[in-house]
Amino acid sequence: MKRVGAGLLPSLLTLLVCLLLWKAVSLFFPPVILPGPLALLERMIEIYSDPASYVIVGETLLRIFEGFVISMLLGTLLGLSMGLKHDIELFFDSWVMVLLTVPSVCWAFLSVLWFGISEVAPVLTIVLIVFPFVVMNVWEGTKAMEKSLIEMSHVYRADRALMLRKVLIPQLMPYIFSSLRIALSLSWKIALVAEAFGAGSGVGQELINWFQDIRVDMMLAWGASFMIVMVAVDLLIFRLWARRVFAWRPQFAT
């Protein structure tokens, strides 16, 4: 409890400084180009008093969720297999690198060309960009595993399933958690870009619409409100979950 309170003051202070600076700069521009903090808040309230907005946010969240879950499952599975089986590692080694180097925009364009304006295009874009990051991370994690524990499991004749469950996966958990957070933050950014290119709906489409009207205030209001949702997911779901999973570490115990 004490630590939380101690960290709160500096972060509140930085927030205050930022808001003041923002306000100061916004005085030099017209509100449609750079609205002040209060104007932005008004726009956000405006957006969320319209029930239709929740449908839009819901659509985007669903796409992010789908892309995120598929990326995590595929990435963890492939990363783990690459770490455990040398043949699989050799086979996919360079392909993961290739996938990582393809510019995100290419995937967004290609997905639209292949699948048109549809549900598939944005989800596919997310998966193609996010899952190689997960593979890299989990694969790296398999290399950091304690050989001495694997040896111990062999001595006591643990079979593969037991070893995976109790020895290998727990050692990967820190890497899986960092993947979760990277994957989530990447997924939502890519989702908006992908929607802007070709979904016909969602928060990304809203951004494009307001962009065409040169309404920076509305674009910022949509972007900022969505950002709040994603930070909340990170804090409320991942941090609390991590606290449970890593309860065995003395520094996590309260």
Binding site: V155, Y156, K166, M173
Partner: peptide
């Protein structure tokens, strides 16, 4: 059974979980 120089325990399992691990393995 093998007792190594270092304990080689599974730190994410409780003391009981560590013993049950080898019981399950065997």
């Amino acid at each position: 059974a093998y007792v190594f120089q270092s304990p080689r325990l599974l730190n994410w399992l409780t003391v009981q979980g560590n013993i049950e691990f080898v019981l399950e393995a065997q």
